[in-house]
Amino acid sequence: MQNKLAQVFKKSVEIRVFETMIASLADEGKVPGLVHLCNGAETLQSAVCLALNSTTDSVTGSHRSHGLALAMGADPYKVASEILGKADGLSAGMGGTQHLLAPEVGFLSSNGIVGGQVPMASGAALSAKVLKTGGIGVTFFGDGAANQGAVLETMNLAVALQLPMLFVLENNGFGQSTSAEFASGGVSLLKRAEGFGLQTYALDGADAKDCIEKVETVVTSIKAGEGPVFIEASVPRLAGHYHGETAAYLSDCGGQTDPLKILNDHIGDISEGIWRETEALMVDVMKRASAAPVPSQDLLRKFHTEMGGQA
């Protein structure tokens, strides 16, 4: 377990340092789009992805998915280049911060439509089932997506078709600036999932050890054909909806405990070295990504032609 905790810590630090540096670049005006940071959810995402197989399992995520792409093993240089709109990006700068695709490491796609990524993961689950790969489909979404028809429909579909699928609801209490309490009717989101016939688990996203253990059990049960599972994990949102936001509701975000700090304290002596090494690595990544060339106009013209555009 100590080894797994160290792996989760290392990955979480990678995500935190990566996003902190992206935020600085955004402050300098070097990021073309608005970035949505996952501060507070890193340990949960790293713990879940630790239990997954990047060859056979497929993950989809929301617009807040820099961390998930890294947690599945995407190359930080390619992710950074994509966010900066550079030719060396995952998709040569065509997708950007909200549309990260790294299918080569099992990160199928993130999504600009709240909840739009959830049905896609059911397709990955179907492929795994039909092609008997032993893999599963996994989707991450927030409490803001929990009221989207696409999400609710897919919860039902996964049960009706008995798909090998894991739903991970990251409940950070806010859909943009609207509180989850206000937006969601009913007793609880977990009860909702139970109503669809999903097996459900509640996780404290700040308890990395518990997350690692429970997710391992859950993934094993899904792979054994015991049906789809729904996890609701509580995570803090330590920053705004997007980086740079200054709305009044943000005062409610303050004062929450940072799960990464808890894990840091638990890890002990080795933590300082990990921070230091990661920072050095990411300084180099950001330097190279900042210097990378922008995508060529020819690439866009190529898509134009391929998609039937007028000559």
Binding site: S58, T60, P103, L108, S109, G116, V118, P119, M120, A121, S122, G123, A124, A125, L126, S127, A128, K129, V130, L131, T133, G137, G149, A150, E153, T154, N156, L157, A160, L161
Partner: peptide, 28 residues
Amino acid sequence: ANRVIDTPISETAFVGMGIGSAMTGLKP
């Protein structure tokens, strides 16, 4: 029935399932 699949009346979910399956090796 593994390859010929009746779905619930949930076009968003099953069209999305088709998309995800096409991205991961099937031809739906």
